[in-house]
Design a protein around this nucleic acid. Structure first.
Lengths: 112, 112
DNA sequence: ATAAATACCTTGCGATACAAGGTACTAAAA
DNA sequence: TTTTAGTACCTTGTATCGCAAGGTATTTAT
């Protein structure tokens, strides 16, 4: 029930997590560990339990596809990549993100 | 189950809605209708059913306080205002927001 | 064989936006 | 005086999603 800053920051993260993940996969096909590493480099900590369901949803919505690929050390990996629909979708998120930045700026600067 | 852009945009909104609301109340005490109007002006559509529980949570967490105030036409209104803790909290959200903008920029610009 | 490392996935929980519906007060019209 | 309209407050139920915790499967080294 109580609200704390961490809580809200985590709420903020929810919103743009999908966006960030798609930005990363858009560059080149990636599997879960790669994605987590990339996010961590950008200071965005995400765990497996978050990522697997999210990727599955994006897959079944036709935004992502994947290919199995052998690994040199361990079981095969699922490399996710954007579909054409996925690129379209990412473009829309891009817009959404710009809108949000706009809204916050508008509110901040009003009556100042 | 299906994912669409509207859905995700609404997810994005969730994250920074609290931030925007606090930014608005920080300027001067406001009651629900005022807040909705301000948000609408910034293109952020929010309904009562969202706002009331959110304000209650912020109140019981000590981030907001309120004062009843008579209205010229209708029942009295609850004017919410930031407490000292609330200002501290808002400052933390400010940081969180800057961090998020940073993360997105980092991911966007990596390997370009 | 067994253990360790790596990879995939699922279940249960808590948080929260939103739709829909409800209560209460004021003032003006019937 | 009753009724209606307007304004304000609040609650309940639903769906979604991040995350912690736990589980399964494959490969490689001991």
């Amino acid at each position: 029930m109580a609200i704390n800053a961490e809580n809200v920051k985590s709420q903020m993260r929810k919103g743009y997590l999908e966006y960030c993940i798609l930005l990363i996969i858009a560059k080149k096909p990636m599997y879960v560990s790669d994605i987590i590493t990339e996010l961590k480099e950008a200071q965005l900590i995400v765990v497996e339990g978050t990522l697997y369901p999210l990727l599955s949803r994006l897959k079944s919505s036709g935004i992502l596809g994947y290919q199995w690929q052998e690994s040199l050390q361990g079981p095969p990996r699922k490399y996710y990549e954007l579909t054409d629909d996925g690129r379209q979708f990412l473009a829309e998120l891009e817009e959404g993100w710009e809108e949000i930045k706009n809204v916050v700026e508008l509110i901040k600067n009003k009556n100042i």
